Amino acid sequence: MSIHNVREFSGGLAAVKYSNKWGFIDKTGKLVIAHEFDSAKSFSEGLTVVEKDNKFGVIINPLLK
């Protein structure tokens, strides 16, 4: 897998861009949230904002469950 962009880890996860889509990995490199978003921000206070097909949403950090 060739990662094109990586954001800083926050809340144990980092946003990573692969094949022009964003997803999230944990500190071991395991994919936790699939690469399906057009844009993604780093987690803050357990939440992140993502965009897909010109629609925005919020994801709760699955590591906090």
Results as ranks from 00 to 15, higher is better:
1 M>N: 12
3 I>C: 06
3 I>N: 01
3 I>W: 09
3 I>E: 14
4 H>R: 10
6 V>K: 15
6 V>N: 05
6 V>T: 14
6 V>E: 10
7 R>I: 06
7 R>N: 14
7 R>Q: 15
7 R>W: 10
7 R>F: 04
8 E>G: 12
9 F>S: 06
11 G>V: 02
11 G>Q: 00
15 A>H: 03
15 A>M: 03
17 K>R: 14
19 S>E: 11
19 S>G: 04
19 S>C: 06
20 N>A: 10
22 W>C: 03
22 W>A: 05
23 G>A: 04
24 F>T: 00
24 F>L: 03
24 F>Y: 15
26 D>I: 03
26 D>N: 14
26 D>Y: 07
28 T>S: 14
28 T>P: 05
29 G>I: 05
30 K>I: 07
30 K>H: 03
31 L>H: 05
32 V>M: 08
33 I>E: 13
34 A>Q: 11
36 E>K: 14
39 S>R: 15
40 A>N: 09
41 K>Y: 04
42 S>D: 00
42 S>M: 06
42 S>N: 09
42 S>Y: 10
42 S>G: 11
45 E>S: 08
46 G>K: 00
46 G>Y: 10
50 V>E: 03
51 E>T: 08
51 E>A: 13
52 K>I: 04
52 K>S: 15
52 K>F: 07
53 D>M: 04
54 N>E: 14
54 N>P: 06
54 N>S: 14
55 K>A: 07
55 K>E: 15
57 G>C: 10
57 G>H: 12
58 V>P: 03
59 I>Q: 02
59 I>F: 04
61 N>H: 10
61 N>A: 02
61 N>V: 03
62 P>K: 06
63 L>C: 07
64 L>T: 11
65 K>I: 08
65 K>A: 05
